[in-house]
């Protein structure tokens, strides 16, 4: 072996083969076979019925990713401008919710968003509904917030926002300060420095943030189940029911999972290519 240290990678390669590659192979095998065994494409042909779930999943994940980006980028940027001490504290605060169990966090959103939940009770207490009813003549007792697509997106944003902030922050924070000085020196005002230097140089962070939010969002099942109710079924829920639910059909579940994986991988590849392309375009 050329590099003796490569031996250290053996355990991980083994792990990878056993728990990543093998399951993918199994998913592929399942997806292309029927319960009776034997090759079939039936699992895929049946999937048309779930097009609406696919569309909804991608739509919500996209919305969540976009919102995370819009919130996360400015946050990451502003934190990186602050003092070292502030940065440490801010990073800890951003990570803090992640120390608590994911389900617990999502459950607590249920009790906030419910029709008789914290928010609606607060609105009622400050007389918001009375005011609206008096003004519009409606008969509102609460805002329906739980079991909506909005609630699902909120859950995604809440849970995955740190994954957007962290990579963007770390890229901006490592950026060579003399580059910004050079841009200023060459006459660029703050807006131009941001547009022409900081933004393009932080693109790698944005890409990895987008990936890290979009992928878990598109495949989540817990968030949609808890905050979206039974109406807003997502791909994750669909797959879950095929494996452990009433509609037990691991072959169909595998096929759905496979299609989702392919779509996600293609999305990411296109996006990364686009990111590189942008860099190259400027390079040319």
């Amino acid at each position: 072996m050329k590099n003796r240290r490569a031996l250290f990678a053996v355990p991980y390669v083994g792990w990878l083969a056993l728990f990543v590659v093998a399951p993918i192979v199994m998913v592929v095998l399942y997806a292309f076979s029927s319960a009776a065994g034997g090759f079939t494409l039936e699992n895929f042909s049946r999937m048309g019925a779930y097009a609406v779930v696919f569309a909804r999943s991608f739509k919500l994940a996209l919305a969540a990713t976009l919102i995370c980006l819009l919130i996360g980028y400015p946050v990451a940027y502003m934190i990186s401008r602050e003092s070292q001490r502030f940065q440490r504290v801010a990073m800890m605060l951003i990570m803090l919710p992640m120390w608590m169990n994911f389900l617990l966090r999502t459950y607590s959103w249920m009790s906030i968003l419910e029709n008789t939940g914290l928010l609606n009770r607060l609105f009622s207490a400050i007389g918001l509904f009375r005011l609206i009813n008096a003004l519009t003549g409606a008969n509102l007792e609460y805002f329906p917030m739980i079991n909506t697509q909005g609630a699902v997106v909120l859950g995604m944003v809440y849970n995955y926002l740190p994954f957007m902030i962290l990579p963007i922050y770390s890229v901006i924070e490592k950026m060579d300060a003399s580059l910004l000085e050079a841009a200023r020196d060459l006459g660029a005002g703050s807006a131009r420095v941001f547009r022409k230097v900081i933004l393009p140089l932080s693109l790698p962070g944005v890409l990895s943030g987008v990936t890290m939010v979009f992928v878990p969002s598109v495949s989540t099942f817990a968030i949609s189940k808890l905050l979206g109710g039974s109406n807003e079924l997502l791909l994750g829920d669909l797959i879950e029911t095929q494996f452990v639910g009433t509609a037990y059909n691991p072959h169909l579940g595998s096929a759905i999972a496979l299609v989702m994986m392919v779509v996600v991988v293609v999305c990411m590849a296109v996006m990364n290519r686009f990111g590189e392309g942008e860099e190259q375009a400027v390079m040319l």
Partner: peptide
């Protein structure tokens, strides 16, 4: 007066060239 409004330019110690731009840009 901030640097961008001064009629002087600087050659920085480690050049501080923009890595995302080519020589022309």
């Amino acid at each position: 007066i901030p640097p961008n409004l001064r009629q002087v330019n600087t050659v920085f110690q480690r050049y501080a060239l923009f890595p995302h731009l080519n020589v022309f840009e």
